[in-house]
Design a protein around this nucleic acid. Structure first.
Length: 274
DNA sequence: TTGACGCGCGCATCCGA
DNA sequence: TCGGATGCGCC
DNA sequence: GTCAA
């Protein structure tokens, strides 16, 4: 590769470390002649997301120890329960699968007042559910949320920071990415399953569902209706636990910590090769 | 090593009618 | 001004 | 890029 295009590749990779900058934006910045993140910071036209991404570019690349994840989650639970005890929340992703370190904190939220019907109304009328906004407001007031990336009716993406000094570094705790995702309470278990993952298990379960004439996603498990010409999703199958989903698919239940299939599949493959 | 494959959604922002 | 298209991050 | 063969 020529030195010039090597430099371009390096810059593309550098710019894409910033959250909010993907391939298209990175190319645009290279075309503008930017050579560094400092050049980037002088651009007056960065999106809000990109500004936040740039501000915390180093911190977002640092992994979050499990005990800090637990502390962060505890704050969210405590704060939200104080304003409304009917909030239900669970941290998903690798944390729920038992990982010792995580990249971000992904929390799904339900509330008995937020149903599928309610969600449809919200979307059609572009009204706002106060439930997520209220939760965010409470966490901001606490000083726990420091910046937002995006904030809508059902999904908040932002930045949080545990208060005080991190004994590991003797410095303030790092800024961490946090997502709050509101889902209709009827979809809680399929949502929990989907957002806990991992990707590989999701793929396996979805394709198994397909084989059995179902369709599975974070919104539920449905029977597919086959007609002459087309297939449409049919009635939703009632799900009252994650176990229910495994059961319907004829699979043995897997505890969250048993759902790390990515590494397992790879390991098996490597063993086969040797 | 090779070839098949990877979905869809919420939000911010841009763009053209 | 508004609706659709695009970019992005995410399991 | 990932993953199965």
């Amino acid at each position: 590769m020529s030195p010039a295009s090597q430099e371009e590749t390096n810059l593309l990779n550098l710019f894409q470390r910033v959250s909010g900058i993907g391939v298209v934006a990175a190319k645009k910045f290279v075309d503008k002649g930017y050579k560094s993140l400092e050049d980037l910071s002088n651009d007056p036209n960065l999106t809000h997301h990109q500004c936040v991404g740039l501000k915390y570019v180093d911190e977002f690349e640092k992994e979050i120890p499990r005990d800090e994840m637990e502390n962060l989650l505890a704050i969210v639970k405590k704060t939200l329960n104080e304003i409304d005890s009917r909030y239900n929340m669970e941290a998903c992703g690798s944390f729920r699968r038992g990982a010792n370190i995580s990249g971000d904190l992904d929390i799904i939220l339900t509330h008995p007042d937020f149903t599928e019907v309610e969600e449809k109304v919200v979307k059609r009328h572009k009204a706002t559910t106060p439930l997520l906004a209220q939760a965010v407001q409470a966490l901001e007031k606490y000083g726990f949320l420091t910046d937002f990336v995006s904030t809508g009716n059902v999904k908040y993406m932002g930045v949080c920071q545990f208060p005080g000094t991190d004994p590991r570094s003797n410095q303030p705790y790092l800024h961490r990415r946090i997502d709050l995702r509101f889902i209709p309470h009827e979809n809680y278990y399929t949502g929990l399953l989907a957002w806990t993952g991992d990707d590989e298990l999701n793929r396996i379960m979805r394709s198994r569902a397909k084989e059995l004439g179902y369709t599975l996603n974070e919104y539920g498990l449905r029977r597919r209706i086959k007609t002459e010409t087309e297939e449409t999703p049919g009635e939703k199958i009632p799900i009252n636990s994650e176990e229910d989903v495994f059961k319907k698919l004829g699979m043995p239940y897997m505890e969250p910590h048993e759902r790390n299939l990515r590494g397992v599949v790879k390991k098996k493959y490597l063993m086969y090769e040797e």
